[in-house]
Nucleic acid binder design. Structure first.
Lengths: 243, 243
DNA sequence: CGACGCCACTGATCTGCCTCAGTGCATGAT
DNA sequence: ATCATGCACTGAGGCAGATCAGTGGCGTCG
């Protein structure tokens, strides 16, 4: 696999050993590219009959709004991630999706996907694997919000992002670019913006990491992993591990 | 569909209109029945190469344990629910499953499931639908833990259980039997046992609901729905709505 | 150019929920 | 009959994190 493949092919290729033919087929799903501006919902709750997308560039957030106006962000999507896969199956979206930055994404028709599956069953495995991983991430997110304190929660979140970005070549162990405002982080982690700010300052003062001006710099990876009990195997690193 | 079918067939039949032949095929998955005692893990994190199950009777909990010993329960499983479906795909379980009561469950081999799928595609749709619904429930759970206060969180949780149990004929609008201790509820909702106790007392005093001695009695359904902003359509009620 | 808005940041104050340390009541074991 | 165990329940006190009320920097738009 070379860097010339799309983030999507690159990500799946990291988990299931895929042939060049299969990788090229994955890239082939990236026709029908669309651009969405940041700040306006591209899918909103209750909407029916829309498509799934694969993110080509940019970040998005999926979230729910509660009656009192507060927002819970369920997950962020980065290049290579699916958008709205579940809502295709359920027919009606149960959450909103809003780009965080300008977003490029490719529309994926269920029929195209199924054709690829019957043609190349290993691709089906890989896609199912990715969907399961997404679900596992939501579960981990739930555990964090339910049982971890603010500091550990933020560290865990930033390490998870690092792992995910690394998969598509957008992060190194030293750091990564991150377009999320403190407010977005707060809404994802069930904290207030003010508190996120304070904790980030503490992490900076402790020499653990710096998150500023849209960039995360990791100063002490071992320290971070130790304090957050981040599972290295959970989303991590090295080459094809399945099949 | 008649009450003679298994909870599993009954649940799926409520969402996808299935023929008698299809319902009977679903019941046919219930060979290989096993009994698990409460209190001992049936699946634990990191375990590989185990099966999926369908719950026939009894309740189970899936949870994670954190390094500090605290527990986050991700979901409870009731009759008709899948157990460990995702961990079959991922090959290694990412969480533990422990029966809450004595549990009867049927082992389901991936091959049997796939055979049923190729034979009856509508069944595949129904099963995928159920899996998506489970994921949507985890998302809703995340939203609750992140953004709802203790009272609303508990009410929402108990209403969701009511809807799920109703689907398999184990609840009415008046109430249902619930074998969960206050401690289990607390670990699911990210609260302390003590606080769950207090909130349940308040709900009782407000004449909204009584949860005591393993039984939930609903006194004021409209009041509960209003205060928790429970989405009636989200998991609810009336007959086949898909296909 | 100044005005407006967004974002990062800070201090003061408030509060929801936790922790600790207990009591009372079951049920089952001896 | 008594003891042990588990769950429900209560009050006192503490703390993590929320809310409120600001300041200052920076980009953008009339």
């Amino acid at each position: 696999m070379t860097a010339s493949h799309s983030p999507f092919a690159r990500k799946l290729g990291a988990f299931v050993a895929l042939s060049d033919r299969e990788l090229i087929a994955l890239d082939g799903l990236h026709t029908r590219r669309k651009v969405f501006p940041s700040g306006r919902d591209m899918i909103h709750e209750g909407q029916t009959n829309h498509s799934a997308y694969i993110v080509a560039s940019g970040w998005a957030s999926s979230y729910k709004i509660l009656s009192d106006g507060s927002r819970q962000i369920v997950d962020f999507q980065i290049p290579g991630d699916f958008l709205g896969l579940r809502s295709v199956l359920c027919r009606t979206a149960d959450h909103n999706i809003e780009p965080v930055t300008t977003l490029e994404a490719s529309e994926v028709l269920a029929s195209d996907l199924l054709d690829t599956f019957t043609d190349m069953p290993r691709v089906a495995t890989a896609v199912l694997w990715a969907a399961s991983r997404d679900e596992a991430m939501v579960v981990e997110h739930l555990v964090g919000v339910g049982r971890r304190d603010a500091k550990v929660r933020i560290v865990h979140f930033l390490l998870e992002l690092k792992s995910r970005l690394k998969l598509v070549g957008m992060a190194t162990s030293a750091g990564y670019d991150c377009p999320l405002s403190q407010n977005l982080v707060a809404d994802a982690l069930g904290l207030s913006t003010v508190h996120v700010n304070r904790v980030l300052r503490e992490l900076r003062e402790d020499g653990l990491l710096t998150f500023r001006h849209g960039h995360v710099e990791i100063h002490d990876l071992d320290g971070l992993i130790a304090m957050s009990n981040f599972d290295r195997t959970y989303l991590d690193e090295e080459g094809p591990m399945l099949i």
